[in-house]
Nucleic acid binder design. Structure first.
Length: 259
DNA sequence: AATGTGACCAACCGCCATAGT
DNA sequence: GACTATGGCGGTTGGTCACAT
């Protein structure tokens, strides 16, 4: 049984928010706090679905949202975090105070992809096949997709040769468990060389994490030096995420490109 | 001035993860 | 364990604007 839509959409407003709606939402959240998005619209007197309210608040109305152009430091950080995390926009946004995942995603797609390509840098692209969320790109969705006037961007993307210069594609990490048998999960172990390997025999994949970290380290340190050490500390932090508590056993999913 | 084209970005959609029952 | 509700995420769409023709 499928899950019910987030809202019935009957009689609910859609499209751009009006100033009045913004005020209602902001006032309500400032008084009652975030959460209970499902019931919030009704309580706030809004004819919107909770999902829409949440999105509006998170991406636009929150008082800590930073407005204005993304500066060079932020851009560098986005590029580097993307190299480490892939399209995990919310994680990347979490490292850029005041920036939202939507903003970063838009900035990446509209500015950075082109910019990096113009510099001859291969940009990792997404494709349904590679997405960790298995059912994306279903026939239903494909059918839904229409030709757009600017669809050339997406088509160009497909044409991009997948010679990655970046470290891993989006990867979800967790310590391996004895009964870990989920799909798209690879168990990693320590090899005879003392390095950490992750393998998915079905794809012939074999990943060495220590090599990866070393290489990424070099990548991070090779081009720019940040006096404040911000990027370095961020990188260190995410590097730690790739190593489990016991230091060698990891489970990852969907690590390598399918060819 | 009218029309076409492309870029930008707010908003939507569908899905997954998780918590609660 | 199965089911449902909710929050959250990433991909995509479509409206708007600026610029070119």
């Amino acid at each position: 049984m499928g899950r019910a839509p987030c809202c019935a959409k009957v009689g609910l407003h859609r499209g751009p928010w009006t100033a009045k709606e913004d005020t209602l939402l902001t006032d309500f959240i400032q008084t009652h706090g975030e959460g209970n998005w499902k019931s919030l619209p009704k309580r706030a007197g809004l004819l919107r679905c909770g999902k829409s309210c949440r999105l509006r608040w998170m991406n636009y109305l929150r008082p800590d949202i930073k407005r204005g152009d993304i500066n060079q430091d932020e851009e560098d950080l986005i590029i580097r975090l993307h190299s480490l995390l892939g399209n995990r926009w919310s994680l990347i946004a979490g490292r850029l105070p005041g920036r939202t995942d939507n903003e970063i995603k838009n900035y990446w797609n509209s500015h950075l992809v082109k910019k990096l390509k113009s510099q001859g840098i291969q940009v990792r692209e997404t494709s349904p096949k590679n997405l960790p969320r298995g059912s994306r790109g279903s026939e239903k969705e494909k059918k839904k997709k229409k030709k757009k006037k600017n669809s050339s961007i997406a088509e160009d993307v497909v044409e991009v040769q997948r010679t990655q210069i970046y470290a891993p594609k989006p990867t979800r990490l967790r310590p391996a468990t004895a009964n870990s048998n989920a799909t798209n999960v690879m168990d990693c172990g320590q090899g005879s060389d003392g390095k950490i390997h992750g393998g998915d025999s079905s794809k012939g994949a074999d990943i060495c994490w220590t090599d990866f970290i070393q290489q990424t380290d070099q990548f991070f340190n090779s081009e720019l030096h940040y006096e404040d050490g911000l990027l370095g500390s961020v990188y260190q932090e995410y590097s730690q995420l790739l190593i489990s508590d016991d230091g060698y056993q990891l489970a990852i999913d969907s690590y390598l490109y399918d060819e």
